[in-house]
Design a protein around this nucleic acid. Structure first.
Lengths: 339, 339
DNA sequence: CTGAAAGCGCTTACAG
DNA sequence: CTGAAAGCGCTTACAG
């Protein structure tokens, strides 16, 4: 086992004080360039690494950001979206030499709160990333109280005290609605995720606004992001009588559920019913038929989230400007409105 | 912002020494039960949390395990397998009050090595979990040299120096081969992942052994876990002339690729060709046709991996015994061998 | 430009 | 059972 080499070892070997070594290592003034070079050379040779705990204890940052995922693990497994956001976050953190502490706590509300308390109390992380914001989200006052830097991702609450990174929800809603309007649809359905979620409320609002401008009717059904529930709800709606000629589902898995419901009820997609997914993924590609979906560039989004948090931690708020416009991938689940 | 409360604050308020407070907090002998109760009560009241860096600096564990994922982020997004393993790992860590430090480094070989060096040097983690082991894997000597506890997951190399957690590969191969044999298949294809991976080599060996016992011929093609490549390779093979009547693909995404290739070549599945996936997922369920797949219980596997590492860290090696047998979910992509 | 010293918040022998 | 003290490996005023 490699013996741990400390700053004291370096100092001793070089006949310097620990202070000088520290200054040299950290690029601080107070040492000659020559001395600095000697220190750096020896540090490299002996493979010295700063002890993260010692650094943190004497006031430095931890170099870690925390992320609590409060979704059902099975959902996390089926939705590629989060894994892609995660990889975007990682990509950005790596450049900044930051690490990610990950916690999955399941979907019961409030399970994440003690995690933040603990991380703050133990000084584990320099900041946290929040997803799936809810109305009157208890995390916000808690983090404020804890003094833990945080960034909200995915939905802006008017007057929020925390920096927020949002996708181009406005453009997303417009693109989807315009596609359907262009195909002649005048009555569309919105299959949303759980209504407590702010980004769901926001989408609902924006879809309705865009549809209203285009003279289209909207009706909504609340789903839970699972295929089974979506299939049941849309199946019931289809049996119930005349309804929307197109459904917009809030994720890929629910869009699949809608397609399956249609198949079971003998309703042809896209002949008699169109389906659009708010998230793109392999699931949409291989659907039968392949499903028209919004590619919202989840990796990019993850990068922006991480960048905003790092800026917040550094004290130079940035607010993750510049969402890249989503691309609507038109496939075979959408077609002209049935007459 | 909440003011940090330290062990010194508690000691002062209670008129005790820091040592006594520490003993009380840690359940060490050396304080009366009465004193201990007073300390614990005040600690709770003031919401005291131990500083993780201070603890670690004075010799304690970090309470963190590390995981480096060296796969292409896009693959991670499409394969539900890893997210499920991750959630199993998390579930086990939470019980042990451990955290997970996650790093994604892309698939270029060797990108993960500096991460281990750094984590060891900085004393960031108490141990690491290794996946996707390769022949002559450079991580093994490196971790040994670094003295960082580690557990190998997914494939056992004979005589490995590290504790290893393996799925029931033997049973998996047997189940798949027996199903196909029972359906009359006598010539099967094995669409593997990259051959450098030990678990792929192992599967290949076991599939061939099981087939040989049953008097079946096997041919293999090496894929790369992506749908596109699988579709191309199987397409070429189908055009090339008589071939296997059934293909076993090493993951769900490649199984889909095989099914698509068959569709494009006008080969009916399962009428003229059967397809089995080594991994189950929503992708298999919604395939057209739905794909017969092995449910290898990835969450369970993740739990076992984490448990084995925690045991290793605690110095009570456990070797994650007791793989739960996989369940073969027979769907519509498998049928009697074409005459 | 360089060194001696204090301090970060814990733990842990070592005395009483 | 309790307290004074040293130490973990850094950083950072403060003197020289």
């Amino acid at each position: 086992m490699a013996e741990r080499v400390t700053i004291g070892d370096l100092a001793q070997r070089l006949g310097l004080s620990k202070a000088s070594v520290s200054y040299a290592l950290n690029g601080q003034p107070g040492v000659s360039e020559q001395t600095r070079a000697r220190v750096l050379a020896l540090a490299r040779e002996l493979q010295w690494y700063p002890s993260s705990s010692a650094r943190t204890l004497s006031g430095a940052r931890t170099g870690i950001v925390g992320l609590v995922l409060s979704r059902d693990p099975d959902l996390l497994g089926t939705e590629p979206y989060y894994m892609l956001v995660l990889s975007g976050i990682e990509a950005e953190l790596i450049d900044a030499e930051y690490g990610l502490l990950l916690r999955m706590v399941g979907s019961e509300p409030g399970r994440d709160l003690p995690v933040y308390e603990r991380w703050a109390g133990e000084r584990r992380v320099d900041g946290v990333m929040l997803f799936d914001q809810r109305r009157d989200d208890p995390r916000i006052p808690l983090l404020r109280h804890l003094g833990l830097p945080a960034v909200l991702n995915g939905a802006a609450e008017p007057g929020s005290v925390l920096p927020t990174v949002v996708p181009d929800e406005h453009g997303d809603a417009r693109q989807v609605v315009e596609l359907l309007h262009g195909l002649g649809h005048r009555w569309i359905g919105h299959l949303t995720g759980p209504s407590g979620l702010l980004h769901e409320e926001r989408r609902e609002l924006l879809v309705r606004a865009a549809a209203a401008r285009a003279g289209m009717a909207v009706e909504s059904i609340e789903g839970d992001y699972t295929m089974g529930t979506a299939e049941r709800l849309i199946g019931e709606r289809l049996r119930h009588g005349p309804g929307p000629t197109a459904w917009v589902a809030s994720n890929d898995v629910m869009a699949l559920g809608a397609v399956r419901a249609a198949a079971r009820e003998g309703v042809d997609v896209p002949g008699r019913l169109s389906v659009v997914s708010w998230d793109d993924s392999l699931l949409c590609e291989i659907g039968a038929p392949p499903i028209t979906a919004l590619d919202r560039h989840p990796r990019d989004f993850g990068r922006r989230c991480a960048r905003a948090l790092l800026a917040e931690i550094a004290g130079t708020p940035d607010d993750g400007t510049g969402a890249r416009a989503s691309e609507l991938r038109v496939r075979s689940s959408t077609g002209p409105a049935a007459p």
